[in-house]
Design a protein around this nucleic acid. Structure first.
Lengths: 349, 349
DNA sequence: GCGGGTTGGGAAAAGGTTTTCTCAGGGGGA
DNA sequence: TCCCCCTGAGAAAACCTTTTCCCAACCCGC
């Protein structure tokens, strides 16, 4: 399995220490340390001999001892309250990805919505001397149930409400919504409805406002957005409202949905009414939850929040903070992208 | 935010050390250490005074230093290759949950299917002296792209293929399938079909076999299971095959599906054909992916693999191993449970 | 031959905690 | 009065690595 290294020490009990390497090479630990780290002065021959010895013995420096001395553990904590959600996972993977190459490991801390659990995790991380913390959640407009405000280590907030004066990264929901609505406009749609989630979510308003702005900018009439639940069932209901009473000429020719589940419901309901997607009505969703977007008939065009990138950026931002580079506090918005499938229609040939 | 402790040291630069506590209390570090750990002998008064001093100063022992000495880092690694999947997340949360109360933190290691990434993560964990590793994946019948066979620290495999001689925890898929099929039998269904995923998955065969066994045990005829993809589309196709040509009397009166997406497709296709679920045909899915199971019409009865419990068990098993208790190697199967909603029908009154 | 600079390498402290050993003093029994 | 044991507490080693400081030897020019 190993590619080029010597065979791994087969279940040798205690790990090899620097002292043993030094003894085997006939030098002092100080010299051995310097040889391996490229520090100090010695003949190239000595340095190489020590390195070879270390390699042969399978020496790997004890991170704990290094951390103790360097006051840097090359470890960060990742706090989340989104245990079952689909938002955290790509985000977490992004953070981990961005950091593993720099030798930084990530502590996974699932705090649910439990203050006690949050406290417990934060204290554990502090005790373990993490270099910093990434806080992430399932809602962009809610705080985690922990206080990270004066912690002596840097904190970056990703996809969750940051403390004032902290560094926060979120997706640009308004931009994402514009992407979708502008697409519709370019495709010649004129009556673009918006079906979205409950008013208690900030993103509902952000996206609705962007939707309205684009309509106005293009001289199109904007009705009220339809607010409901984040569910397929609400998608069904919304279709009943939009396509129910009025004559065909009053129907929308496009529906921009607040998430993919709603879009799924909308598409299903339209099909049940014999309304063709995308010929009669275009549909675009939000979140680009692939397993849903690819199962709708036709496959769903959707706004992707690039959460993995968001995670990577958050990891990098934290690292930069840890290394002492100051960062402008405030919220940075990262662009979304539109993943075009078939539900929005194509440009007329 | 803190509940009862002294106000946290407001961004005091260096953490308080034991030496400082000792100095403040007028004792040696040795005595201070013993006082705080309940070791050694001293007057109750001295012990209490030291403890009070530590509390006042907000002393928290440096885990790094402790780990170095105790040869135990109270840290484990969690390896996964299921970045976007829905299986890992509850599993990971379970592991984390089981361990946080014991003061053990979890390193999140996302290895995708990349050998290099796997190697990188494993080496990083080893360097950081994790006490053990939980390996988990998205498929029960595949190895992770890393070699954990002779690692000097204990390894527990959860929901992934274990190395021979190692400890592995998986869900009892056969038992889960029995739960579903026996339910149908008790409800009086006689022609129970099985629509499932591709033959390349081991669970497809495990579940199909259990399905067949239950049918035989109850004197019911077993046709061939329908193997296809893990998708809604395949659920549609399967319905076309099952309910297509033959007369109504040849139709199944129940369909056991290999996962919830297939079940979703089946239910939708049945409705499109005007076949009532659950009156004409009962449907049960697998995975209990709530967001799908609750969106089907009617809501889907489904087999839940109890992944969070599986994760907890895995965490506990690893901990036990770390603490030196020997564990029987081999694969332990954890029971599934049937989450009853409306798609399977109720007992006749 | 001698002073100064360079070269190669070692000794030791530091980092924060735990644990083993040691020691001083006091009390009790003979 | 002497001895032994117990009590309370401190000194120091240990964990493993990094880094600073130091030293011996060598080379060079004068």
């Amino acid at each position: 399995m190993s590619t080029d290294a010597e065979p791994a020490p087969v279940s040798a009990k205690p790990p090899v220490t620097l002292r043993e390497v030094a003894a085997a090479a006939g030098v002092s630990v100080a010299t051995a340390s310097k040889a391996l780290n490229g520090q100090g002065r010695m003949t190239a021959e000595t340095r190489e001999r020590i390195r070879e010895t270390a390699r042969l013995l399978g020496f790997r420096p004890n991170s704990l001892a290094q951390s103790l001395l360097r006051k840097r553990s090359f470890t960060v904590g990742l706090l989340t309250n989104d245990t079952y959600g689909r938002f955290s996972l790509p985000l977490m993977a992004g953070v981990s990805d961005a950091l593993v190459d720099k030798g930084v490991s990530v502590f996974l801390c699932n705090v649910e919505d439990d203050q006690r659990l949050g406290q417990l995790h934060v204290e554990a991380m502090l005790d373990k001397r993490v270099d910093g913390i990434v806080a992430t959640g399932k809602r962009i407009d809610r705080h985690l149930p922990v206080d990270l405000s004066n912690l002596r280590i840097p904190v970056v907030y990703a996809f969750t409400q940051p403390d004032p004066g902290a560094v926060g990264l979120v997706s640009d929901d308004a931009g994402g919504a514009r992407l979708a609505v502008e697409r519709f406009v370019r495709l010649g749609r004129r009556r673009i409805a918006h079906v979205t989630g409950p008013a208690s979510f900030a993103v509902v308003h952000t996206r609705a406002e962007a939707w309205r702005d684009v309509l106005k900018e293009n001289g199109l009439a904007a009705s009220e957005p339809l607010l409901g639940a984040w569910s397929e069932a609400w998608g069904h209901d919304a279709v009943a409202r939009l396509f129910g009473k009025v004559g065909r000429e009053g129907w929308p020719d496009a529906v921009f949905c607040g998430n993919d589940q709603i879009a799924r419901g909308v598409i299903d309901a339209l099909r049940e009414r014999g309304i063709s997607v995308p010929d009669d009505v275009g549909v675009i969703g939000f979140d680009n939850w692939e397993i849903v977007a690819e199962a709708t008939r036709p496959p769903l065009t959707s706004v992707d929040m690039n959460l993995a990138s968001l995670g990577r950026e958050a990891g990098l931002a934290l690292l930069s903070l840890v290394e002492g580079h100051p960062a402008a506090p405030g919220i940075r918005k990262l662009p979304c992208r539109l993943v075009v499938r078939q539900s929005c229609g194509s440009p007329p040939q």
